[in-house]
Design a protein around this nucleic acid. Structure first.
Lengths: 230, 230
DNA sequence: TAGTGGTCTAGACCACTCA
DNA sequence: GAGTGGTCTAGACCACTAG
């Protein structure tokens, strides 16, 4: 007799792990499970909501609940502010503004925003340091047409990322992870060798389809993104 | 007067995007919001559950609900079966078993599993092809002590990944993303050049702390992982 | 210790979709 | 058309924690 939704979820998970329920198997209806567990249907619904969210089961009206046929690994990454990531690791944070200028967007930036024409944006290049060593190199474009106040910010003291997070929420965000060889310039800034494999995180954000910023964050050699999945 | 939870969620989100609610701002209690929106408290609770899950707000008993002070980008990746990923992209899937042998785990594998001592595992190397071109190179260790049936599977016809997914659910999974330079061997298999930057996805899975498998999937040059975030 | 969020119940109606 | 999941209500009690 389980009367909390977490126990019901765990019991269903156990049946999957113990192979009592195989991929594709159909579960009883919520109503029947409620009777089995001796609880209200709402409670079963809450457990099933969680299992559906984690990808364990698929639910369809009239079709019922089934164990996912082709399970996928669903991973969630929280990408923090770089300063907090470094400080949380117990290291000393450092920040260095490399350049700041208004330029016309090159094609790859415009296309990332989905713009049909190039436009002027604020281009900011900066370096984040952990214990005085290069950690992440940041190449950022900011649409000052959308956020004009950013032109008055002293970006040599505070990273554009932190200012934007406090002052410019976004409605949409696209994230890309990839690998690239270090250019001589990147190698120099990151204390790496030319052609070293570097891990790159790109993010583009919009507010109601108006561009806000696009950033390419290039990590120093050895960087890993780690997470636990369900 | 909103009486469905999605509308309430969207209205709160709108207030955040329009900067009517700033990071750190305290929201009225669920009870008060229920009166404002003219609905039951349960409905507000459902909306808030969603906002908390997406990282928009923080909720604490007695402390109330606040707009997240340091918003983070929370991204969710679904890592599918490679065959389905290729077929979904409308390409022809190919699979080639490179090697299969029982070996003692090298230190990096044992430590990834959290094992104190090395143990014998099945080591499988395979290549996934998209339209006859190398797509992902897979280097996998399978704990046949946990899953002895895998020794009888013909891994030249079916990838170990697909067999495991159908036959060996996991309770825990750790995922790592990183970049590495191609070794001569990897370069040859992936039709790349030695030292090309390659994107690597590593996954280690357990069932109730017993090791199942660890895989290092190395993608051909140009591979990107893309997702939309909230 | 009092306020706030988390959960459960019992019942109702609706929305989707399978047969 | 009927079965099943999704949502809403009104009320209750519990669990956590800020002041």
């Amino acid at each position: 007799m389980s009367n909390n939704w977490g126990e019901i979820r765990d019991e269903i998970k156990r049946r999957v792990l113990d192979r009592e329920l195989l991929p594709g198997a159909k579960l009883p209806s919520d109503q029947e499970l409620a009777e089995e567990f001796g609880c209200a249907r709402t409670t079963v619904q809450r457990a099933m909501q969680d299992l559906a969210l984690s990808g364990t089961v698929n639910r369809r009206r009239k079709g019922g609940t089934r164990i996912t046929l082709h399970p996928i690994t669903r991973t969630t990454f929280d990408i923090p502010i770089t300063r907090l990531e470094i400080e949380t690791a117990g290291k000393e944070y450092g920040y260095y503004l490399v350049s700041r200028e208004i330029l016309v967007t090159p094609p790859y930036v415009a296309s990332s925003f989905g713009l049909s024409k190039p436009m002027e944006m604020l281009h900011v290049v900066a370096l984040h340091l952990a214990d005085k060593k290069p950690y992440i190199f940041e190449d950022r474009w900011i649409a000052h047409a959308t956020t004009p106040e950013v032109l008055d910010v002293d970006l040599s003291r505070e990273s554009a990322n932190e200012w934007l997070i406090r002052n410019r929420p976004y409605s949409d965000c696209e994230v890309r992870f990839l690998a690239k060889n270090a250019t001589p310039h990147e190698a120099e800034l990151l204390a790496a060798d030319t052609d070293d494999a570097l891990f790159v995180m790109e993010r583009t954000t919009w507010i109601n389809s108006a561009p806000i910023t696009m950033v390419r964050a290039i990590a120093a050699p050895g960087y890993q993104l780690v997470t636990k999945a369900s």
